[in-house]
């Protein structure tokens, strides 16, 4: 969460970042990039990998999943840019691709890119991601824009509340890339352990139901890190998750931990 002093230097001091473009061989860690549409996800993706993936100032432009790689601190990282979504609960194709990757792909770190000017809406997605994975970093992007609108975001407070590292950024200006790399590195290597915020329901009936189901899921899959989230999905009637329970995918996930192979996910949106 420290920001380097020299954020305005022309050649930014992104530590020992090596952009590897599409060379994704022998990576040590998988990093997923999630976020709402139009929050600068692609800018961060390009800044980290040196690729120049173009997406316009449009919500919903990255339809396919882009992948790239970078090396930092002696480790090689594979970076997966997920489709921009508002949520992971609905059943649109994009959301399913993003959700499936975070759940079944088990990235070592998930970077949640958030727009500081619409924090509330972006936290909606962030909280959902944190229900699935506890290894996440929040990239608090567009702080320059927020400042222009007279908004100040207390990133320390946010980090304390969310329980994950929060990196203030203005990615278009290249600010904060260094700190982001550092945070990703620390979470990936286990130097920083996240204690992510857990959702609290307003309804006691729901709370009781979630608790009961979570306990049962924990009994069935003791090593599953996101039992509560699975409980929420089952209560919401998510057939994809019910199917994963039925066909043993979830058991496999619980047992294999983070060495699970990256599943191939179809990219066409209108299959």
């Amino acid at each position: 969460m420290t920001q380097t002093d020299c954020t305005t230097c022309p050649a930014h001091h992104a530590g020992n970042l090596r952009r590897l473009g599409v060379d994704m061989s022998n990576f040590d860690y998988v990093v997923a990039l999630a976020g709402n549409p139009n929050v600068g996800k692609s800018t961060i993706f390009n800044a980290l990998t040196g690729l120049r993936q173009h997406t316009g100032n449009w919500p919903g432009k990255t339809v396919t999943r882009a992948e790239g790689a970078f090396a930092y601190g002696g480790k090689r990282y594979k970076l997966v840019d997920l489709p921009g979504t508002y949520s992971l609960l609905s059943t649109s194709r994009d959301e399913e691709v993003a959700r499936d990757f975070i759940l079944f792909g088990r990235p070592d770190v998930t970077i949640i890119v958030a727009d500081a000017t619409r924090l509330e809406r972006n936290l909606n997605l962030a909280l959902q991601v944190l229900e699935i994975t506890d290894r996440a970093v929040l990239a608090l992007n567009l702080l320059d824009e927020a400042a222009r609108h007279g908004l100040q975001v207390n990133d320390r407070r946010l980090a304390r509340d969310l329980g994950i590292p929060v990196v203030p950024m203005a990615a278009r200006q290249g600010e904060g890339v260094d700190a982001l790399l550092q945070a990703v590195h620390e979470v990936a290597t286990g130097q920083v352990v996240c204690k992510p915020y857990r959702l609290k329901s307003g309804s006691t009936a729901v709370q009781r139901a979630v608790e009961l189901l979570t306990r049962q899921i924990q009994a069935l899959f003791p090593d599953l890190p996101n039992a509560r989230w699975v409980a929420l999905r089952l209560l919401d009637g998510d057939q994809r998750i019910a199917q994963a329970v039925r066909n043993g995918e979830l058991r496999e996930l619980a047992q294999n931990g983070r060495t699970a192979p990256t599943p191939s996910i179809p990219l066409e949106i209108m299959a």
Binding site: Y86, S87, L89, S90, T91, S92, E120, R121, N124
Partner: peptide, 11 residues
Amino acid sequence: GAERRRFLDLG
């Protein structure tokens, strides 16, 4: 259906 879910996602 889809319309309701979209509204909810938008907050």
